[in-house]
Write a protein that binds this DNA or RNA. Structure first.
Lengths: 250, 250
DNA sequence: CGCACCACATGATCCAGATCAATTTCGTCA
DNA sequence: TGACGAAATTGATCTGGATCATGTGGTGCG
């Protein structure tokens, strides 16, 4: 399934192309050892988990799982960017966030997915059978902490997002979104200003609770003001200072 | 501390006035045994927890804890309604929610409170020292599950709230808020339509990301349309059907 | 008692963003 | 390469909620 057509090109957190195997102790090569969910585990725990993980590949635009389906697996994102969204009863689509490397997808104690996920660019993920994951938890109480903290972080993010949506202005919202996006791709040493993904404006709109038109116009304004550049393959951040200033402004 | 001036009158989930003691195995009398956080615990776990809990009383309008302070205790609400809020960098106040009986306040694995809480009406709470709580967790892995699920539920709520804030219309937002409030006080058998708390309109506004004026006008409209009545001591729900209909509407 | 303060209420005006309507890329596939 | 559908872009208008302003009722306190 999900044959890998797009080879390497767009792997953002390029990790040196290790020899991937189906069941790899891939943690050795994984840059995520120290970030996100996995970053909170001990060496042994990582090895333990890795033993039962499967490496999943997901081409751009493919769906990983759908809201409402039974949760038979949970995932940790290794590379790529995923779009997470819900369908609301009134038909609206609410993008609840974008998953970046290190993020844990789905809640292992829920029987059903409460959101859908698909890839914006092609992605690699570690896949765990839900029951396996739960038995890991039972075996090693320390893991519970990692899970709770992970969920709690999602909670904090969701609250931040809520505060953002409450705001009036379009510019602060879009600016904030861009900054978050930038952070997702920011690496410690690397002052890279280019984010190599193309997020559809419709997604941004559904994420920020505004219309495509407004998103578009706002982005256009940012471009005109030389704050960013939008190229075919990504966004170039020219003036982070100003972007931050805009994001702060009520 | 927090001498109890207002005696009983406004205890919503009136639980038959058991003989409260400082260190009570109050669970026996607590209607929450089967709801919220405590509801997910076994009998033994409840006893264990109760042994180290302290009953805290909080008068209306008093502050339980403040954002940024060190988290030395966590709480479970027994009765009353609390307002939870954050101060944002831009000065705005964001009400992140209202805690009702059964809700767990604060995250025991965080060293600092990430929000403030104070009582809308007078409240009773079970108080735990954070370190005690953590040692409970370590002792009994099952508790971890209860914690994770609790946090996850908060996450779901936060997401729902986010979706709500994204909406345009004022009426759906206010309607949704009223329904949530109603649920908080809904008891299984009881078709009570009166919610005996007075939530300041300013809080509703800061919760829904709108201005007091709009909240006021919207409420006024609901009253005019005989959907609710607002009395001195609470809100009377006259037409839940219509309220739900309004809440659904995009 | 009267004053100050605060939550609530209501009217008048303004404006940012939604909505409606075209047109122009762009990506994909035959 | 050409054609078709989706996404992006741009313009014109409309409108609901924000803003500004002012008034009222209640309540605590000197």
């Amino acid at each position: 399934m999900t044959s890998s057509r797009e080879p390497s090109a767009r792997m953002p957190g390029d990790m040196g192309k290790p020899p991937f195997t189906e069941k790899s102790r891939a943690c050795d090569y994984c840059e995520l050892r120290n970030r996100g969910f996995c970053g909170r585990l001990t060496e042994e725990q990582q090895v333990l988990l890795a033993a039962r993980s499967r490496l999943a590949t997901l081409d751009a635009h493919r769906t990983l799982f759908r809201q409402g389906e039974e949760t038979d697996h949970v995932y940790v994102v290794r590379s790529g960017l995923l779009r997470l969204y819900q369908r609301l009863r009134d038909g609206r689509r609410q993008v609840i966030g974008f998953a970046k490397p290190g993020d844990l997808l789905l809640f292992p104690l829920s029987a059903h997915n409460d959101y859908s996920a698909d890839a914006l660019d092609s992605a690699y993920l570690c896949q765990f059978r839900r029951e396996d994951f739960i038995s890991f938890l039972r075996r090693d109480p320390e893991l519970w902490g990692a899970l709770a903290i992970s969920v709690h972080e999602d909670l904090l993010r969701a609250r931040r997002q809520g505060a953002l949506l409450g705001q009036r202005g379009a510019e602060p919202k879009v600016a904030q979104f861009l900054l978050t996006l930038h952070e997702s791709y920011g690496r410690p040493n690397n002052e890279t200003t280019l984010v190599p993904v193309r997020v559809p404006q419709a997604d941004i709109a559904d994420f920020l609770g505004m219309t495509v038109e407004t998103v578009n116009r706002t982005l256009a304004r940012f471009v005109r003001d030389a704050i960013i550049t939008i190229a075919k393959r990504g966004i170039d951040f020219l003036d982070l200072r100003r972007l931050k200033a805009i994001a702060e402004s009520s």
